[in-house]
């Protein structure tokens, strides 16, 4: 019985990964090789190799952004994915012209309902809550729905006494939802605080790019802070800083390696070592860092 359910859960996740459209259908992979240029080194890399990476350049190690469902499927134990609040979306609090249409087209092109996916699942047999932001959806910006999904996931982890892992990727607060987007920073940060006060383990993984209101709220509050190689993270974006100081920023500024050097990260972890790193941290925290509720 349990196997049938877990098979169904896995099929659902596989389907969602397919709908994200990043992993090409098997039929297309069987055809003639399609090349995509690496944004890092500019070399052409066959699509098959991108998909195998996943989305890490085999030549220079550049980490391309990947979809929320794809990342979950790479990390969670097969058949353990249970999505939380998969259909939650937000309205148009500012009556911002054209916002609904833009949301609809983002939903079509990414297969996502919003810029974040949250799920219960298992990692190396340890039950946990995992949240993944997706920068392809409105730059992963945080509006009311993203803030609500993150908050609900944190509260679920607290009540179910599970550790929490969040992969961040965001351009910051979502402009189109105005001040209510800003308020999501308060909402998510206080939920994290409550979870941590209850003894819960919270691991953040910054992926490229994590900026603005997400950096200045839940992304910076991890008990353990990790990042993918080359991921840019900061409060102000590089363009704004350059305008302020009137000069070019140094090479590597605000990148993961720079943040590690400046004391804001525990480690920079390549994508192919992420799963084992997370497993080892979870094991080191006894019962996986379960909240006391």
């Amino acid at each position: 019985m349990e196997t049938r359910f877990s098979q169904r859960r896995q099929r659902l996740l596989d389907l969602k990964v397919r709908r994200e459209g990043q992993i090409p259908a098997p039929a297309r992979l069987a055809g003639p090789a399609v090349f995509e240029q690496c944004p890092g080194c500019g070399e052409p890399v066959p699509q098959t190799q991108w998909a195998r990476g996943p989305y890490v350049c085999p030549r220079c190690g550049y980490h391309r952004p990947i979809g929320g469902y794809l990342r979950l499927s790479q990390l969670l134990d097969p058949g353990t994915f249970r999505e939380l609040d998969g259909t939650l979306t937000s309205g148009n609090p500012l009556d911002f012209p054209g916002y609904e249409q833009k949301l609809a087209s983002a939903r079509r092109s990414t297969g996502l309902a919003e810029g974040v996916v949250s799920a219960k699942g298992k990692l190396c047999g340890i039950p946990l809550v995992m949240v993944v932001m997706d920068s392809r959806f409105f730059m992963g910006s945080m509006g009311v729905a993203v803030g609500e999904k993150v908050t609900r996931a944190v509260e679920t982890a607290r009540k179910a006494k599970l550790p929490l892992v969040i992969f961040t990727a965001s351009g910051g607060a979502r402009m189109q939802e105005g001040i209510l987007s800003l308020m999501q920073m308060a909402k998510t940060a206080q939920a994290i605080q409550k979870f941590q006060d209850a003894g819960g383990l919270y691991i953040t993984v910054m992926t490229h790019p994590t900026t603005g209101g997400v950096t200045a709220s839940f992304a910076s509050l991890g008990d353990i802070a990790l990042a993918e190689p080359g991921a840019l993270s900061g409060f102000a974006g590089p363009r704004v800083i350059e305008q302020t100081i009137g000069e070019k920023l140094p090479e590597g500024f605000q990148r993961a390696e720079y943040l590690l050097e400046h004391g804001f990260l525990d480690a920079v972890v390549p994508r192919d070592r992420m799963k084992e790193t997370l497993c080892s941290i979870l094991r080191l925290h006894g019962k996986g860092g379960a909240a006391r509720g």
Binding site: M185, A186, Q190, A191, T215, G234, F235, F264
Partner: peptide, 16 residues
Amino acid sequence: RGQGEAIARCLALMGG
């Protein structure tokens, strides 16, 4: 020196 972290800690602190 961590502008984002400094603001995040203010929010988390005020939350509790």
